[in-house]
């Protein structure tokens, strides 16, 4: 298994092509096209994924998010860093997040 490197200094924010809805303890991401929701495909996040998503506000760096999550969840930093790198790659591949210029 290849361990992915976490790019700690990068800052991400939701792309302009997705809106977030919190419904009944679920975090749902809805792709939009123009001004309309694309209802053919939605995305849901689990608890830790939703926490990362909430912290991706275009202000916090990946490193800052990592530190916040270590305070929130019972997890070792190394494991969280690897999981976060993979999760961020998934979000980027799905065009759900964009890198925020520093």
């Amino acid at each position: 298994m290849v361990s992915q490197a976490l790019e700690c200094d990068k800052i991400y924010c939701p792309s302009g092509q997705v809106v977030t809805r919190h419904i009944a303890d679920e975090t749902i991401l809805i792709p939009i096209s123009g001004n309309l929701a694309n209802m053919e495909r939605l995305f849901t996040l689990n608890d830790s994924g939703a926490s990362i998503w909430r912290l991706m506000d275009g202000k916090r760096s990946v490193q800052e998010i990592l530190q916040d999550l270590i305070q929130e969840f019972d997890v070792a930093e190394d494991r969280l860093a690897g999981d976060m790198a993979e999760f961020i790659d998934q979000l980027r591949d799905l065009d759900l997040i964009a890198e925020h210029p520093v």
Partner: peptide
Amino acid sequence: SNTNKKGKKSYQKPEVKAIVV
């Protein structure tokens, strides 16, 4: 859907699952 003795939530690997201005 959430703590251990340290007051932290139990951890699960973050996941995005593809399947509502």
